[in-house]
Amino acid sequence: MFMAALILILSTGLFFFYLQAVCQKILRRQFSQEFFQSIVNANRLEFPSVRKAIEDFGSPVEYPRLTLTLKCDFLALTYLLKNAANVNQRYSYEERLLIVYFKLMFASLVTRHWLKLRETPAALKLTAILEYFANVVGERVNTVRFGNLTASDYLLNL
């Protein structure tokens, strides 16, 4: 009985650990270039400044602003993921998984704030997810062709 209870507790914990590991592995994907920067500039997203604040000062900006910024960026990027240069107009499996992961990490950020624990690791993970989304959108936009032009060529010819 004791053995079964121990197995149940450990297995449940490890299940969530592996789920997180899969998400982290997906986030490690290397893109051929930093596509996210153009998407950030074009849509005035704020997550890079949040990350810079954390890296420079060791702590995020004030909590209400942090949550609002991350939530707004998340909404903008998930909309773009679904609608910008996406022929099928639906998320892929890994995007769905990362959306769930973002929501769980966001819940973790809120919980950490309530419990007065360090919010920095959760905030950094959230910005990493947003950067991945922005890279995916940027990569798609970069490969879309307007006639014989890529999106970049098109912009250059404006």
Partner: peptide, 13 residues
Amino acid sequence: AGKQTALAEAVLE
């Protein structure tokens, strides 16, 4: 491609 994106960013800005 990197140069093109950099130029595209400049146009966007």
